[in-house]
């Protein structure tokens, strides 16, 4: 009697053990099979990689239980993520300029932003981001997108500012002036809108105009736009500094017949230079001249000129 009870118990214990072992083996198998299956999936053709955008935002409108704002946020986050991923996944040797993002082929950026603003036509951050980034991909869509924003929010002067900015980047100064003019007529538009309209007519290509442009961008819009504008402002400063340094370098060369051996040789001359806004050159403790990102300017003795490592454009300008 007790023997059979014991036998029963050990059978129960055994079956529990078998189950535990089976579960353990099963878990491992699932882990490896899942990885293997994931690794051996048939690759999607290159052209279809971005093809997962199957829904059009405007078609969702009215059919998402009043959650249009939330879906717009999702498209917005996707648009940020999308471009971020493109940057991160770009081949390391590829040089990407903020002025031309076409090598990344971010063809879905506009649809994402378009969807976000279809669902939530007042989504200002999306317009601001679009105005900053889209000109570097396809200026026509950038203009179309911003005009759409104006159509939905005709009283928001910011959108006219963005439109003016896009036209200015395209060197279409008349249209830029017109956009600023229209914007300045909107309620609550600050005086600089009027001033920008005037700049466009007289002095559109100058560095001063560019500075004013980016300064205004930096205190509007979303974080992305602000960072971009701040970068641009620093870049403009670097450009100005590079020009000033190069001028002093050529003065020195003319006077002494050879290029300086070290930038330290022209520090006294640079001390007399008045930069925009009365700023001065910045120096490290060791006496090196540094750009706005505090990286020392690099002297190219052969060409007898400098460039900034932080702002590749300053060297390329030459």
């Amino acid at each position: 009697m007790s023997k059979t009870v014991q036998a029963d118990r050990s059978r129960v214990r055994l079956s529990g053990l078998v189950l535990a072992v089976a579960l353990l083996i099963g878990s491992f198998a699932v882990y490896f099979l899942s990885n293997a299956a994931g690794a051996s999936r048939t690759p999607v053709p290159e052209s279809a990689i971005d093809d997962d955008l199957s829904l059009e935002g405007k078609r969702l409108k009215g059919f998402v239980f009043g959650a249009e704002g939330l879906i717009a946020d999702v498209y917005w986050m996707q648009s940020l993520q999308y471009l971020g991923d493109k940057f991160v996944n770009a081949p390391p040797d590829q040089v990407i300029s903020l002025d031309d993002l076409r090598p990344l082929n971010p063809r879905l950026l506009y649809p994402y932003l378009d969807n976000a603003t279809d669902l939530d036509p007042g989504f200002m951050a999306a317009y601001s981001y679009g105005a900053t980034v889209l000109p570097a991909i396809d200026p026509a869509t950038a203009i179309k997108f911003t005009e759409k924003g104006i159509a939905s929010n005709p009283e928001n002067f910011r959108l006219y500012q963005y439109l003016g900015f896009i036209y200015w980047k395209l060197h279409r100064y008349d249209e830029a002036a017109a956009a600023y003019e229209r914007g300045s007529e909107q309620p609550g538009a600050p005086p600089f809108m009027k001033a920008m309209a005037a700049f466009m007519a007289s002095n559109a290509g100058s560095r001063e105009t560019a500075r004013a442009m980016y300064r205004q961008m930096s205190d509007s819009g979303d974080q992305q736009t602000r960072l971009n504008a701040e970068y641009r402002l620093n870049e403009l400063d670097a450009e100005e500094q590079v020009e000033a340094i190069n001028a002093r370098l050529s003065d020195y060369q003319k006077k002494n017949g050879s290029c300086v051996r070290s930038l330290k040789d022209i520090v006294p001359a640079l001390g007399a230079v008045k930069l925009a806004g009365g700023a001065q050159f910045q120096q490290t403790a060791a006496g090196e001249i540094v750009d706005p990102k505090l990286a020392p300017y690099v002297l190219d003795s052969a060409a007898c000129s400098v460039h900034s490592t932080s702002f590749p454009k300053t060297g390329a300008n030459k």
């Binding site: 239980f65 959650a67 704002g69 917005w76 986050m77 940020l80 981001y129 974080q223 602000r226």
Partner: peptide
């Protein structure tokens, strides 16, 4: 992090929905 500074509107949208 995800919304580039748009967390106020996103929290409202997410929370209310």
């Amino acid at each position: 992090e995800l919304t580039a500074g748009q967390e106020v509107r996103t929290i409202i949208n997410l929370g209310l929905n």
